[in-house]
Design a binder for these strands. Sequence first.
DNA 1: GCCAACGTTGGC
DNA 2: GCCAACGTTGGC
Length: 152
Amino acid sequence: MQYWLMKSEPDEVSIDDALAAPGGVVPWFGVRNYQARNFMRDAMREGDGVLFYHSSCAEPGIAGIAEVASTAYPDETQFDPGSKYHDPKSTRENPRWLLVDVRALRKTRLMSLPEMRAHPELADMQILRRGNRLSITPVTPAEWRCIIRELE
DNA sequence: GCCAACGTTGGC
DNA sequence: GCCAACGTTGGC
């Protein structure tokens, strides 16, 4: 059992959108970074805990709790010429990009970046590091417990 | 819209 | 394999 923080742009898929999906399950499409892909492919397992993070928006921060709902499988958007996630170099025989399904469990109050920074226990979180751009990052059990406690 | 940080690309 | 140029991310 591991824990993760996953960024989503709420204009694209917000925690409300995910909760409104059938069973609260959404495919985490659009990851186009090898490190993030490898986390999904090599380390994520069904039932892993997920902090649902809203990025590139007015109020960036943790907005909900979710869980990993599948192992990795090919991201269909890479094959769709009409998608902004289309990758002409990827083939169905050898797909370059994968995704996992994520099940939204509940919406929380927003835990903002400044609030996260104010917690000494969270000081080492990857999301808080300068220049961090990775859309999927591991969260330690201690960080997870701290955040869950704060959001209760 | 700015801009720092970082990943990717491609010429050599 | 180096590295400059370029594109993207994402908070502010």
